[in-house]
């Protein structure tokens, strides 16, 4: 499986936030998208997830333009937006059954993705009482409900402690190894090390960037 993002553009009033974003990603690869705050990283992911419309361009997977075929997109693409996409008054289990059938959720908790994310440890805890790491793991667990081969993550480990970041990074490595395609926006060096290719959005244009662990060089490029 391969995805082709071609000429995606988006304008807010007169400002070109994204200009002809073009990118292709193969199976089992992770792409890191970097850029200054407000450069258009989240906008790009939300367009690919179908939350907002692009002014032009395509997002093709196996010959299907996912920007036009919403059904296929919902089937193939998992999306974890910034923030906490959970119902805070309810437990982890309640949040899971919004996305999973009860039987599937139980199965996944035993030996599937939810098990890998360690969600069984806090299944009855109310979201408002969870730590940031628990919430993020649960959010990723919810996004993985249909086992999508493409996962879009908007700053997945922002504001988490190192142990939580490590836990999530381990799961994402597993996802990659199982052939999943990862697109993540990040400012985090640990997440960058997960990626196989790096891009920076500057003035709405996507530029390739070679990250070799030199943060100073990265800051210069931003």
């Amino acid at each position: 499986m391969q995805i082709e993002i071609k000429n995606i553009s988006k304008k807010f009033k007169r400002k070109n936030v994204l200009r002809d974003i073009t990118l292709s990603v193969g199976e089992g690869k992770c792409i890191g998208i970097l850029g200054a705050n407000g450069c258009g990283k989240s906008t790009l992911l939300s367009i690919l997830a179908g939350v907002q419309h692009a002014d032009g361009g395509s997002f093709v997977c196996d010959g299907v333009d996912l920007l036009k075929d919403a059904r296929k997109r919902a089937e193939l693409v998992g999306y974890v937006p910034q923030g906490t996409p959970l119902i805070s008054e309810l437990s982890a289990w309640d949040n899971l059954i919004l996305w999973y059938d009860k039987d599937t959720a139980k199965q996944e908790l035993e030996n599937g993705v939810l098990h890998l994310l360690g969600i069984g440890d806090f299944l009855k805890v109310t979201v408002s009482k969870m730590s940031g790491g628990m919430k993020k793991r649960l959010s990723i667990g919810c996004a993985m409900a249909k086992k999508p081969p493409i996962l879009l993550l908007d700053e997945p480990t922002a504001a988490l402690d190192i142990a939580c970041k490590q836990h999530i990074a381990e799961y994402l490595q597993h996802y990659k190894r199982s052939g999943g395609i990862l697109l993540l926006t990040t400012h985090d060096v640990m997440e960058l090390s997960l990626c196989d290719a790096w891009y920076i959005i500057r003035d709405g244009v996507l530029c390739p960037f070679q990250f070799d662990g030199d943060v100073a060089k990265l800051v210069e490029c931003l």
Partner: peptide, 13 residues
């Protein structure tokens, strides 16, 4: 204050 669940639902049609 957080629209992320609405966005996730929207992404899931």
């Amino acid at each position: 204050s957080d629209m992320s669940i609405a966005r996730m639902l929207s992404a899931r049609r």
